[in-house]
Design a protein around this nucleic acid. Structure first.
Lengths: 149, 149
DNA sequence: GTCGTTGCAAATTCTTTGCACCTGA
DNA sequence: TCAGGTGCAAAGAATTTGCAACGAC
C-alpha cells in the first residue's frame, strides 16, 4: 500500500545526485525509527555499535546531504546548543516538552493550519514552514513543578 | 501609567539577589529597545562602542543571569548556531521570517491561545511557554522565491 | 569588608573543512 | 573509471570557566 513510501530514500537520493551508501542508509533508518529528533552525536554513538567504523564528520556530512534533499528537518529549538534532526514527514508534528522530566510528547495536531491563511490575507506572507515547540508540565510532573535550570 | 513597568529590572534583580551593574543595565536597555532578538555577539559589539570595556563572557554571563530571573527568553530556532535573546515581554510575539531576504516581521497574533486549552484537556499537559517561528516569503520576495541555502 | 561581578585567557563543546584514500554506479 | 563519499586530524565558531582584580551594597 505505501508504494511510493516504500523506498523514498534511494529514489530521492538518485534524483538529487546523492550516492547511496551504507552509512547514509543506516542514518536514514535510524531517523526513520526514532521517536524524537536526534542529535548528530546520538546518531554517531548509535551507529558505532552497528557499523564498525564511522566518524562524526560523516554523520554531519550525511545529515547535511539529506537536508539538501529536503529529507530532513533541523531543529535547534531546545536551547542546549545541539541541533536535532528528524525526518521531514509530510504530516508534521510538534512536541510537548516537559520542563521537569524533559520528556517529549509528540502531537499530531497543529494550530498553524488556520493561522497560515490569516497570515496570507493579513500580512501578505506566504508560509512555507514553521517551527513550534511547546513547554510545560506533563501529567506526571504537573503536581510538583520545578524548573531544571 | 506603566508604574510597575517603570523599572522592573532593579526590582526583580534585587529579588533574585542579582547585583545591579552598569553592564547589566546597558544590556537590558539594549534588549528593551531592540526590534528583534539579539545574539550575544551583537550585544557585545553594540556595547563596545558605548562602554569602554566589556568582554564577551560578561555578555554571556549577564544574559544567563537575566534568564535565571526570567527577564529574558532565549531562542535558538534560526538554525545558524547562534542563540538569540529577547525580553520576556508579557505580551509575547512571533516572527515571520522571509526565506529569501531574511527579514523578520513581528506579529502580535498567536495561534496558541486556543490551542493551549485543547492541550490541557486532551493531553493533560499544562503549557507554560512555547516557541514558534514561521518561515516563508514576504510580500516583496514572494514573486521570485529562491532559497538561500 | 564581603561577596558577587568582570576581564582576560584558556578550555569546552558543537560543527566544519582539508586531504588522501576508498567506493558505488 | 572516477566523481563523490569517508576517516582522520585539525580548524573554526559559539559558549563556558578559572582566576585574580574590581565594584556594589
Amino acid at each position: 500500500m505505501p508504494e511510493n513510501q516504500q523506498d523514498p530514500l534511494k529514489e530521492i537520493m538518485k534524483k538529487a545526485g546523492i550516492k547511496n551508501t551504507k552509512h547514509r542508509n543506516l542514518i536514514f533508518d535510524l531517523l526513520q525509527n526514532a521517536e524524537e529528533p536526534l542529535t548528530a552525536e546520538e546518531i554517531f554513538i548509535s551507529l558505532k555499535d552497528k557499523s564498525s567504523s564511522i566518524c562524526l564528520s560523516t554523520v554531519y556530512r550525511t545529515l547535511e546531504k539529506l537536508m539538501s534533499g529536503n529529507l530532513l528537518l533541523k531543529t535547534n529549538i531546545s536551547d542546549d546548543g545541539k541541533a536535532r534532526y528528524e525526518l521531514n514527514h509530510d504530516q508534521h508534528k510538534h512536541y510537548l516538552i516537559c520542563m521537569k522530566c524533559n520528556k517529549r510528547i509528540s502531537i499530531a495536531d497543529c494550530p498553524m493550519k488556520e493561522f497560515e491563511k490569516a497570515l496570507k490575507d493579513q500580512a501578505n506572507f506566504d508560509v512555507i514552514q514553521h517551527k513550534l515547540e511547546i513547554y510545560g508540565y506533563c501529567q506526571d510532573c504537573k503536581t510538583s513543578p520545578q524548573l531544571k535550570r
